[in-house]
Amino acid sequence: MTKRFTRTRALVTACLAVASAMGIGGCGQAEPEAAQTPTSEAPRGIPLDYTGFDPENFISDQVLDDSKTMTDAQIAAFIAEKGEGCHAGRANDQDIPCLKDFSVVTESYAGDEYCPWGYQGGEEESAAQIIGQAARSCGVNPQVLLVTLQKEQGLIYASGGDFQWFSYPSAMGYACPDNSTCDPDYAGFQRQVYYAARQFAIYRIKPERYRFQAGRRVEARYAPAQECTTTEITPANRATASMYNYTPYVPNRGALKGRGDDCSVYGNANVYAYMRAWFPQ
């Protein structure tokens, strides 16, 4: 299952048309954070630095698998700090809360071999609680989940007009294939976060199922469009391979230099840049 990540303006426009037609899902940000112009009401983002990005090794297994990097309280504090000054939005006649103010009644999920503790639902759980419980159950770093929320829907820094009606239903871009529609069975913030975390656990436990594998040379596209060229990469570790399985595009030279074109997809470069900026090792 191909996962959708940040891409160019033209591709986002096309994706939005599909999402609007089906009534669910959505599309990520078209430009890297450095290229965005903050509005007067929005918290400022950060310029992203792609210096040193290695397409074959940009995240380690140890980092991806460390589910103990943050407590729920630390996750909440991080969200509150990055969203300081956030104003709620409104879209499709719906009020859209800031991530720091978001809460929802959550479902319970049975544990399995990928997420042994499953998920114990509760009343009005916060985004931080959802991220924390999903990370612990599936053995995935909550920092990676936070980074994914930002690069998919910009939720960490979103404010006011940044929010769209699909911001929370498709928060992690999970089950939103390229050139197709999002699966409504996975719509909603809790489902997006939990099943994205579970997917990373599946990549860890059953890597042989997937196209990108550590040490295996494979052809990879720069972007979904047929006119975009390909390159060959050999992921150095399982974590890097996992990121490509989640979003199977290599950032091209223009993307890494901040001069993206119609074949620039920033998703995996943004994993590197946000982890480096927010959670330096």
Rank of each mutant, 00 (worst) to 15 (best):
Y222Q: 00
P235L: 04
G161W: 11
Q226C: 05
E208T: 07
E107N: 07
G154T: 03
V218M: 07
E152A: 01
F200P: 07
E125M: 14
F200K: 06
T148Q: 13
Y174A: 07
W165Q: 10
K151G: 01
P207D: 10
L146C: 01
V140P: 05
E113M: 11
P184Y: 02
T230V: 05
D185C: 03
Q199W: 15
Q143M: 10
C182V: 02
A110S: 09
Q226V: 04
K206F: 06
P184D: 04
Q192P: 01
T181G: 10
E208K: 15
Q153D: 04
T181A: 15
F163C: 09
Q164K: 12
F189G: 03
Q213I: 10
I233Q: 09
A158Y: 13
R216L: 13
G173S: 13
I130G: 07
G161K: 14
T229A: 12
Y174F: 15
T181E: 04
S159N: 06
R191M: 05
R198D: 04
V144E: 06
A110T: 13
I233C: 03
Y174V: 11
A223G: 00
S159G: 05
T181S: 15
D178P: 00
R209A: 15
S167L: 14
R191F: 11
Q226H: 09
Y119G: 14
L146S: 06
M172E: 13
A223Q: 05
A134L: 03
Y203D: 03
S126Q: 07
Y119M: 14
S137H: 09
V218C: 01
S103V: 09
G215P: 00
A236P: 00
Q199P: 06
E123W: 15
Q143D: 08
C228S: 02
S137K: 00
L149G: 01
Q226G: 05
K151D: 02
C228I: 02
Q133V: 04
E123C: 12
M172Y: 13
Q153G: 02
R136V: 06
A171K: 05
A201P: 07
D162C: 08
Q192I: 05
M172K: 10
A214L: 08
V218Y: 11
R204C: 07
I131A: 08
R217N: 12
E219K: 09
I131Y: 14
Q150Y: 00
